[in-house]
């Protein structure tokens, strides 16, 4: 009954995941990222102060807050991309920094030089660099995984397209494909929806939720408090320090939003309790 067969529309990593579940090999079900007293100091400016919270696997977690609240900073600090002035980040009972091969990180689109001489295929294959190992060529398996990832985001017809010739939404989907190709357990995205069309946004959210169903951890820095906020399961609300964290309903209260944003805030109608 539980036969696993190859089929085009299922992702390879998901299959491996199912197999592991069947065999009961997973080290821990629902591993959690636990952030304790994370602080970041930029020269004299305090960018993040003693933030403690968790991000659960199987959930799509948004990091929200006003401009300059330290959202991207928090993500980068968690992943060891910038020096922290204090705090720890644990995952699956071990320091996250010792398990970097389990992380897929997609930076803000504006941080990337889109005139770089690379094709869509080149970018997606970057997701296989770490798994391939030093001095080795990409294997057939890696190519298959990259191909599947591109199909999953609906970009498989664009393999040979230079990345500079893509629309913003297509660029974001290529980056998502790269993250999928990494077969990571933790997926982190820095403002993936800025300047993105509605169609791409719903494709991306669908995949986020698929990942969550496969017990992955999905963490997304989101600037916008509009309709997109309703797609998150959990939220982390920041304004240099942690304002609130938990399920969307718990976090999106008038009081929390007032504390984060001050007086005026236009969030999606009907959400706040």
């Amino acid at each position: 009954m539980n036969t696993v067969t190859w089929s085009g529309d299922r992702h390879w990593s998901q299959m491996v995941c199912d197999l592991r579940d069947v065999a009961g090999e997973r080290s821990a079900l629902h591993p959690t990222i636990t952030i304790t007293k994370l602080s970041v100091q930029y020269r004299t400016v305090e960018a993040l102060r003693d933030v403690s919270c968790v991000a659960n696997s199987g959930r799509v977690t948004g990091i929200i807050g006003p401009n300059g609240a330290g959202k991207s900073t928090m993500l980068k600090a968690m992943l060891g991309l910038i020096p922290v002035s204090g705090g720890t980040v644990m995952y699956d009972a071990k320091p996250l920094m010792d398990q970097r091969d389990r992380i897929a990180y997609v930076p803000q689109r504006t941080q990337i030089d889109w005139t770089y001489p690379a094709t869509v295929w080149d970018v997606v294959m970057m997701g296989r660099v770490r798994k391939s190992g030093w001095f080795r060529r990409f294997s057939g398996v890696s190519r298959r995984i990259a191909q599947d990832a591109l199909e999953r985001v609906g970009m498989s017809g664009y393999c040979d397209r230079p990345i500079g010739q893509l629309s913003g939404g297509q660029q974001q989907r290529v980056f998502l494909a790269r993250a999928l190709a990494q077969e990571a357990d933790i997926f982190c995205f820095d403002e993936p929806f800025s300047g993105i069309d509605q169609k791409t946004q719903s494709i991306i959210f669908n995949i986020f939720h698929e990942l969550a169903r496969a017990d992955k951890t999905v963490i997304v820095v989101n600037h916008d408090l509009g309709e997109s906020i309703t797609h998150f399961d959990d939220l982390i609300l920041l304004n240099t320090e942690l304002i609130a964290a938990g399920s969307r309903q718990q976090v999106l209260t008038q009081e929390n939003l007032y504390r984060a944003y001050g007086g005026h805030v236009g969030f999606f109608a009907g959400e706040a309790a």
Binding site: K76, L79, G80, L81, R100, D101, I103, A104, Y105, V106, P107, Q111, I112, D113, Y116, A118, D122, V123, M125, M126, V129, R130, S132, W134, F138, R178, Q182, C188
Partner: peptide, 18 residues
Amino acid sequence: KELLFYTFDPLGAQAVGL
């Protein structure tokens, strides 16, 4: 392949532990 990744997206490369 490592240098391609690093020169295109240094942060992404750092995040996966290169």
